[in-house]
């Protein structure tokens, strides 16, 4: 059996969980074994309809009201008990923060290897995986050993596809046996006040600035352009290291991963750590003085020139056409 660890919001599986199910079903079919799922947290059983349409034959629901809050060690202990009772050949989690955290706890408890952020799995002996390194700028082919194969799926590496031949699903509700120790860490969500600003994660247009913007003040021109386009401002790691912008604005391997319709990269060289954060953008427009900068070769559109001069010319043209 292949077992998928499903994350959900009120019974609706997250999009990364659907990607996981797509990969897990193909793997289960290739191995000739059933696909099952574990759902933890309130209203998990209501996910069964959607899970059935993705080819899940049994959904295991953990019944313990203490599990309605996220407690990584307790969630992992619940998974470990299911693994010990049901003996899956493969256990797959998502590459989300929670998926990675729970699977790391599971691997630690079972003392088994874990392959993080896989893009491809080839079952057999040896059991081969392809996994992402450097935020996906590099791929590693690896042999994964262990009595149970543990892995997480790289986000956005699989296109979601429901199962054409889905049939009935069985719901198995069980109460895990958990200790107080499993609840030493419990996570409480903190609701933020809505600032009314377009968030970097949701914006259709992101205007990103790098060292080439020149100074913290230089970002004013970028703010203006973003506001005219209803977008948000982002930046490179060089800029946060210089203290010009807060880290929350950083796009890249150790910052935000964004997927806007258009990313306007102003004075950004295009180091791989930055491209990891913006390569999901539908289009990239590079504004750079150096036509040899790596960003230009990776962009769809480019303007060669000084950031301030170009951005100011663009904002004046927008203003000329749409006087406010």
């Amino acid at each position: 059996m292949v077992l998928g660890f499903i994350e959900h919001v009120g019974g609706a599986p997250t999009s990364l969980s659907l990607e996981l199910l797509t990969m897990a079903r193909r793997l289960a079919q290739r191995m000739g074994v059933p696909l099952e799922a574990l759902v933890i947290g309130g209203s998990g059983a209501s996910a069964s309809g959607i899970l059935a349409s993705y080819g899940v034959s049994v959904v295991h629901v953990a019944d313990d009201e203490r599990l309605s809050a996220y407690a990584p060690a307790a969630w992992a202990h619940t998974m470990v008990q299911l693994v010990e009772a049901a003996h899956p050949a493969v256990v797959i989690g998502t590459g989300s923060d929670r998926g990675a955290e729970v699977m790391a706890h599971v691997a630690a408890r079972l003392r088994l290897p874990l392959a993080a952020n896989c893009t491809e799995v080839i079952p057999g002996n040896p059991f081969l995986v392809t996994r992402q390194r450097w935020g996906g700028s590099l791929l590693e082919e690896a042999r994964l050993k262990g009595a149970v194969k543990l892995l997480t799926v790289a986000p956005h590496a699989v296109t979601v596809e429901a199962d054409a031949t889905a049939t009935d699903i069985e719901v198995e509700t069980k109460r895990p046996s958990l200790e107080d120790k499993d609840f030493r860490v419990t996570v409480v969500p903190q609701v933020e006040a809505d600032t009314g600003k377009v968030s970097l994660a949701q914006a259709r247009v992101v205007v990103g600035g790098g060292r080439g913007v020149g100074s913290a003040e230089g970002f004013q021109a970028l703010e203006e352009l973003a506001s005219l386009l209803g977008g948000a401002v982002g930046c490179s790691r060089a800029v946060t290291s210089l203290g010009w912008r807060p880290h929350a604005d950083q796009v890249g391997q150790t910052g935000m991963r964004i997927a806007p319709d258009l990313y306007i990269a102003c004075g950004i060289s295009g180091a791989i750590q930055h491209m990891v954060g913006c390569r999901a953008a539908k289009h990239i427009l590079a504004i750079n003085t150096d036509k040899e900068a790596p960003i230009v070769a990776q962009a769809d559109y480019a303007v060669i020139g000084d950031v301030k001069a170009v951005v100011t010319a663009v904002t004046s043209e927008i203003r000329r056409l749409k006087p406010s």
Partner: peptide, 10 residues
């Protein structure tokens, strides 16, 4: 890459 132009006249 589609080059849109250079400097301030773009």
């Amino acid at each position: 890459v589609e080059m849109l132009g250079q400097n301030g006249d773009v």
